[in-house]
Write a protein that binds this DNA or RNA. Structure first.
Length: 548
RNA sequence: GCGGGUGUAGCUCAAUGGUAGAGCAAUAGCCUUCCAAGCUAAAGACGAGGGUUCGAUUCCCUUCACCCGCUCCA
């Protein structure tokens, strides 16, 4: 694989994030905890601003009377905040329980890991020796693979292959082990040279498990921390429709924590085990769903650009047909070229998925699978549903078209922590600023969009005397009710500018000698370094205007 | 989870089997009239736990975290 884009740049960003109090490792004083991260004073402000932007732009500020550019029709938006722990059946019907719950088996020799239920094998014998040959191949390739493996293990020439005896048929390894017809010590792993290198199967659960009740102890009390916020919206679909007067098409938005036991948390906060999602489930008429899918894909793409992400580092990627989830008829990812990735590689910020009626139907009928192109309830060996649905009718009667249907769903699902990381990486710049002697001096600056910046403005007396601090404090108190701002009188003004640049503060207002004479101040722009002179009393109004 | 590498102050780096030193940053004070100036003061570290040793930051083991690769990954 190629070298990461710019690992040293990433290192500097991580270092800045820690040094200035954006992001700390969780439980650091105890040595840290893999895959968990805390937001410090500046970080929490940045993240809150980001979430607030999302909520304002998608939900609170949405005009349901107008048809937004690119939208097929006017629509409504509303919100929800549901619990992290839900009825366990929700995760069985959503598919997460089966999908996220695997038995894995490791090979001590090849260091490879296999899904236990993907392994098959059969007994092979040759001149008195016998071994249970295991393959990870499936379909037509499985049987020839076991022959090749056995041939190599026994050291049989190609023309003597017929001498290898195969007393049993190919069968799932799990079944053979359970039946006691083979012990793991007798198995030859798919990539091993010697038998007995496969470990006992171990349970791999990507969902965090917990127990309900203080005295909990048995399996019936088992519950899960949600691996996505979406299911809480689906199970509340009927509640919202019945109580809020919304009519299709409409969206329900939610921001909240989700949890996944990632096997390999990596790349700073990019893959965390506890993370925050910003999700919309948008419900529409099946016939209109493709148009709504395109609308949301383009709308969400534009949102990142409007908040300042560099277009050249952002990518909108439509999934190929074979890449789609079992339920999806269309998915696009919005991806960012993070510095820790190899050139040409992108990391997912948000997925916009056309989920059809999979989710609502699953919570009605039970867990669905795709069979011959149609979604049907998955059944167990006994012919009954593998996971039973709620049995509640989640269909919708459309008063306008006079038809009843299960709405289709478009799901723009964004990672709040990933977005924060992308905006942080994108904002990070090193440039040169002339020092007091006019010589260039390097500076670190976060070019965050003013809406995202943790601190919007710093109020600085040029020097700490002659009444300047008093005037600056006066202005600070006028501004504070309107936006996050800081007062700083310590050290030289250049140092204070530099400190604010590093935190991403877009504006610095400086009170100088002239302020005392004519009641004007200077307003310094973070990116251009341009200073403009304006009346003291115009500052609050001007900065408020620039923020919107 | 496996293999390899790395852990000394907020950051960047030293030294050492005998109680760890510097620069920058940060804090307090002085000074300072527009982009990290200067002076003074005080503060701050051997990732954690065991073991060997009279004595361990240094040697050994374990563990935790980070980086690279594998595996995995809506």
């Amino acid at each position: 694989m190629d070298k990461p884009n710019d690992q040293s740049r990433m290192d500097k960003i991580v270092s800045l994030a820690k040094r200035r109090g954006f992001i700390f490792q969780s439980s650091e004083i105890y040595g840290g905890l893999n895959g968990f991260w805390d937001y410090g004073p500046l970080g929490v402000a940045l993240k809150r601003n980001l979430k607030e932007c999302w909520w304002r732009d998608m939900v609170a500020g949405h005009d349901e009377l107008a048809t937004p550019a690119g939208a097929p029709a006017p629509y409504e938006m509303t919100g929800l905040d549901c619990t992290i722990i839900m009825h366990p059946q929700a995760w069985k019907c959503s598919g997460h329980f089966d999908l996220f719950h695997d038995w894995m088996i490791d090979c001590r020799e090849s260091k490879r890991r296999y899904r236990f239920d993907h392994l098959h094998g059969r007994w092979a014998g040759y001149r008195g020796k016998r071994v249970f040959v295991v393959t990870d191949q499936s379909g037509d390739e499985a049987l020839p693979h076991t022959v090749t493996r056995a041939q190599k293990f026994f050291g049989v020439r190609a023309n003597k292959i017929e001498e290898i005896e195969w007393p049993t048929a190919l069968q799932p390894l799990a079944a053979a082990v359970k039946a006691g017809t083979v012990a793991l010590g007798e198995t030859l792993g798919p990539d091993a040279g010697e038998p007995g290198t496969l470990t006992e199967p171990r349970e791999f659960n990507l969902m965090f498990e917990t127990r309900i009740g203080a005295l909990a102890g048995n399996d019936d009390d088992r519950a899960f921390l949600r691996p996505e916020t979406a299911q809480g919206i689906f199970v509340n679909f009927k509640n919202v429709v019945d109580t809020s007067r919304v009519r299709v098409p409409f969206g329900i938005a939610q921001i909240g924590k989700s949890f996944r036991n990632e096997i390999t948390p990596r790349n700073f906060t990019f893959r965390s085990r506890e993370f925050e999602q910003m999700e919309i489930e948008f419900f529409c008429r099946p016939a209109d769903s493709a148009a709504w899918y395109r609308y949301w894909r383009d709308r969400r793409w534009k949102w990142y650009l409007d908040l300042g992400l560099t277009a050249g580092r952002l990518q909108l990627r439509e999934h190929a047909a074979d890449e789609l989830s079992h339920y999806s008829v269309g998915t696009a990812d919005i991806e960012y070229a993070f510095p820790f990735l190899a050139p040409g590689e992108f990391g997912e910020l948000e997925g916009i998925a056309h989920r059809g009626d999979f989710d609502l139907r699953s919570h009605m009928e039970g867990k669905l699978v795709r069979r011959d192109g149609a979604l049907v309830v998955e059944t167990g060996a006994d012919g009954k549903p593998r996971h039973k649905g709620s049995g509640k009718d989640l269909s919708y009667f459309d008063d306008v078209s006079r038809e009843r249907y299960v709405p289709h769903v478009i799901e723009p699902s964004a990672g709040a922590d990933r977005a924060v990381l992308a905006f942080l990486c994108d904002a990070y710049h090193e440039d040169e600023v002339p020092d007091e002697d006019g010589k260039p001096r390097s500076r670190t600056v976060l070019r965050l969009h003013p809406r995202l910046a943790p601190v919007k403005a710093a109020i600085l007396p040029l020097v700490k005397k002659d009444g300047m601090p008093e005037m600056a404090i006066d202005l600070y108190r006028q501004l504070k009710p309107h936006m996050a701002c800081q007062y700083d009188e310590k050290g030289s003004v250049g140092r204070r500018y530099a400190r604010q640049d590093e935190a991403g503060t877009p504006w610095c207002v400086t009170i100088d000698g002239q302020t005392l004479a004519d009641r004007t101040v200077t307003l310094r722009d973070r990116d251009s370094l341009v200073q403009e002179r304006l009346p003291f009393d115009a500052v609050v109004g001007l900065l408020r205007d620039r923020l919107t």
